[in-house]
């Protein structure tokens, strides 16, 4: 079947295109959608490209947050000074996403809306407390990312809405950040388990505040407030992390799939916490 292709240049043109093609698919970087269409796992009567709408691109800073247009590519995030300076966690997660070519094409909004349990930017965005602007011709609402993603490939986005902005609060200074990913190789790997961490360590060497998020161990990013609470006030020592790791292994809800078994994922989700020992030697932002 022959598909229509539309290249809107403004949001108004985008709303028009969507009205004409209610079953059209939004095409951002295409690194996921075009693979699914080719494999017969996605169908659409039209492709509506988000590539040429200036309102959906770019990064700006203000009001204590960083605003990222959803059609901003991963490479643009890596090249951006405010992301390098304030969001090292997001930067680290993008550095290991796909390959150079995929990072030149794929977009942050695409990674969010695809809502894969293994999406590399998602644990970082959960830990950072990102909020998402959802816009329709009628107006705009803002929801936290953890309320946006409901399950694998499922979001609360309504048919007439698009993701129109990603708002990331600037973290309080004095933190260290790490994104740790276990996969079959470094490039092009879909995570078997991943973990994002941002931690503030007190002068006396104990954890003041810590935020953690795991990918690929549940239908969406897993956060475990009880583990964060356990770690706060304690030093990041091997003994403490081993004990916390056992809580993590019990708390996650992975499945068996082609990449790994559930039991292995449970084990790794706990053990990956030991990587926090490396964080102590890392740069403080």
């Amino acid at each position: 079947m022959k598909k229509e292709f539309i290249l809107p240049k403004t949001l108004e043109e985008l709303w028009e295109a969507r009205a004409v093609h209610p079953r059209g698919a939004l095409l951002a970087g295409g690194t996921d959608l075009l693979v699914r269409i080719r494999a017969g796992r996605a169908d659409s009567q039209a492709l509506i490209s988000l590539d040429r709408i200036p309102d959906l691109r770019g990064i700006s800073t203000g009001d204590g947050e960083i605003f990222i247009g959803p059609a901003t590519t991963h490479q643009q995030l890596l090249d951006d000074y405010s992301v390098q300076k304030h969001l090292p966690l997001l930067r680290q997660s993008v550095e290991v996403l796909g390959s150079p070519q995929v990072r030149h094409m794929g977009t942050l909004g695409g990674n969010i809306c695809t809502a894969s349990p293994a999406g590399d930017t998602l644990p970082a965005l959960y830990v950072l407390g990102a909020r998402l602007d959802l816009r329709s011709p009628q107006g705009c609402r803002t929801v936290p990312i953890k309320e946006f993603i409901e399950g694998p490939g499922k979001t609360v986005l309504r048919k007439d809405e698009i993701l129109s902005g990603i708002r990331v609060p600037m973290p309080d200074p004095g933190f260290r950040a790490g994104y740790h990913k276990v996969g079959q190789r470094k490039a092009m790997a879909i995570a078997v388990v991943s973990m994002a961490c941002q931690v503030w360590i007190n002068d006396h060497g104990t954890v003041g505040r810590i935020r953690l998020g795991w990918g690929s161990v549940g239908p969406t990013v897993k956060t475990l407030p009880e583990v964060e609470k356990f770690l706060e006030g304690r030093p990041l020592s091997l003994e403490v992390l081993r004990e916390a790791g056992q809580m993590v292994s019990k708390g996650v809800t992975p499945i068996d799939d082609v990449r790994a078994g559930a039991a292995y994922r449970r084990l790794v989700a706990g053990r990956i916490l030991l990587r926090l020992l490396d964080l102590l030697r890392k740069e403080v932002f």
């Binding site: 292709f5 095409l27 690194t31 494999a39 490209s49 070519q101 030149h104």
Partner: peptide, 26 residues
């Protein structure tokens, strides 16, 4: 044909991209 191998790499405005995952309109 699915973005894993890089054989179809071209430069778009000087930046490497995968021609198997782009459509003509883009």
């Amino acid at each position: 044909g699915s973005g894993e191998c890089g054989a179809c790499t071209i430069l778009v405005d000087g930046e490497s991209r995968l021609s198997c995952l782009m459509v003509a309109g883009q």
